[in-house]
Amino acid sequence: MTLQLLFDALSLGGIYAIAALGIALIFGVMKLVNFAHGQFIAFAVFALIVPSTDAVAVMGLGAAPALVLVPALLAVGAGLAVASEYLVFRPLRNASPVALMVASFALGVVIQNVLLVFYGGRPKAISLWPDLGKPVQLLGAEVPMLQIIVICAVLLVLALLALMLKRSRIGLEMRAAAEDFGMARLLGVRANAVIAGAFALSGALAATVALVLVAQTGVADVRMGGQIMLIAFIATVVGGMGSLPGAVAAGFAIGAASVALQAALPIEARPFRDAFLYGLVILVLLLRPQGLFASASAKPRV
């Protein structure tokens, strides 16, 4: 039971962690709270199927073998994110964070309604890798295969990302930019490349979330990225805006708190689970206003 709960927490927290990372990356380099991230996720989900307003979804890209599908979908996510950076956020580079945030929201509205026009408002079913729907025995707990894959995928993504950020030049530049963008630029960091790179990574992370979600739920809905984005957004702040490890840790923490609340609350209180969760978030912020892992740039300096 407890082991099972651990798996539940890891698989839910993992999704939040990847989504939070996608938001934190962009916030780090250009102080943009990207409200379109949820729609990036939804877009990647719908990229799997052929556009049509019919009730039955026909697999397009989703029918391809995993070796083609996964990189292609990551490329779709990255492409969408880079395109939005180029068309929307680059002209706004010097705008206030509020204007950026509202622009990202407007972008989200546009993407969502474009999806509605092309795919219709009805949720659709997607059969992605149906063989995963089998339980397996692991350390005495019967765990759905899906959950193990989700956890492994999350860990793999995090490891690859960490490696990239630590070892490659663009990764180094990104970390430097996340710490202090102005200083990094003075030291020769290529602003356009770093920002485009952060968007590409963030879009690819959104596509990863999309894949995990589809594998887990088997459905596509234009509204599906929203809830995850909200939690991820909160995780980013709780983790300390701009701190990448903080976002990951907070994503896992919120997932774990959600699972723990669901398991521990009495039945009458369970519908209020999210109210408790958000209450906890406010509490954490009051105790540690800079987040759990404040990055050096988070504090305003005089």
Partner: peptide
């Protein structure tokens, strides 16, 4: 009995 929300990313618990 138990409750969940339609847009929960996972109902594992």
């Amino acid at each position: 009995r138990d409750t969940f929300k339609n847009d929960d990313a996972s109902i594992a618990s």
